[in-house]
Amino acid sequence: MSYSIQPNTEDRETGPFFAAAAEGRLVFRVCNDCGHATQPPTEHCPWCGGWNTEWRQAQGRGRLHTWTTVTHQIHPDYPTPFTLVVVELDETPDVRLMGRLDGAPVLTAGQPMEVWFEKLNDDVALPQWRPLGRPV
């Protein structure tokens, strides 16, 4: 698939998320002092007030928190119906990430999800989520 909408991968706060995704790794920003994560990522930890944050690799598993099946076409690159999913990382309830499934699958809150990486082009990949064990 080819999308005209590409993420900015060079932002100073978020670039490492996309650099890791291009290598097939999922990372999130975590505070070494208090253990909380920040999402969207910030260098400063709003939970404890420290600056001792860094990127940490996630195992790539999570739970489905909420979802919506989009039936009203907004953008030609995203034909309807498709389903937007919000997945909470197994590592921390502080981080939830987006994913997109084709069509209108039957989903259940809390069901296990796993990450996969969708290549948008040679340099850019997007972490995506699917129900655990379901092939792409």
Binding site: Y3, I5, Q6, P7, F17, P40, H75, L84, M98, L126
Partner: peptide, 10 residues
């Protein structure tokens, strides 16, 4: 960048 590329736009 965490949202729009997924089709979350509105």
């Amino acid at each position: 960048e965490y949202f729009l590329p997924y089709g979350l736009m509105t």
